[in-house]
């Protein structure tokens, strides 16, 4: 399936990732992506697409190609060093029961 000659892929509006803060005090959360010609346009589109029912009080958009992500293939080697450091968790330490909640 090739795109028709009249709409080469280069003419596609670039892809943006959308992050929405649902209310003051909470973090912005990734909620999806959309195509838009520039950042202002992406903001307007994000408002129309992702906040039609007051789902947000603040929106971030950023170009999808600006994201650097860890490799899924290196899941094990990348995250593994944390697995054998169980002393980083509070449950590693035994405290006498009479001490109560700590």
């Amino acid at each position: 399936m090739n795109p028709p000659a009249s709409t080469p892929a280069l003419k596609e509006w670039p892809l943006w990732e959308v992050f929405v803060r649902s209310k003051q005090g909470l973090e912005h959360k990734h909620c999806g992506s959309l195509h838009a010609s520039d950042a202002q346009h992406a903001l307007q589109m994000a408002r129309d697409v992702y906040t039609r029912r007051q789902e947000g009080v603040s929106i971030w958009v950023l170009p999808s190609n600006a994201i650097t992500a860890s490799e899924p293939d290196s899941k094990d080697s990348f995250f593994d060093p944390a697995a054998d450091k169980i002393y980083r968790h509070p449950t590693f330490y035994e405290i006498p029961e009479k001490v109560g909640h700590m």
Binding site: M1, N2, P3, T7, A9, E12, L15, S33, H35
Partner: peptide, 17 residues
């Protein structure tokens, strides 16, 4: 469309389909 694009198919390809 956004969900399908994560699988490596462009929006234009889908619209063309």
């Amino acid at each position: 469309y956004s969900a399908a694009e994560t699988l490596g198919t462009s929006r234009d390809q889908m619209l063309d389909g």
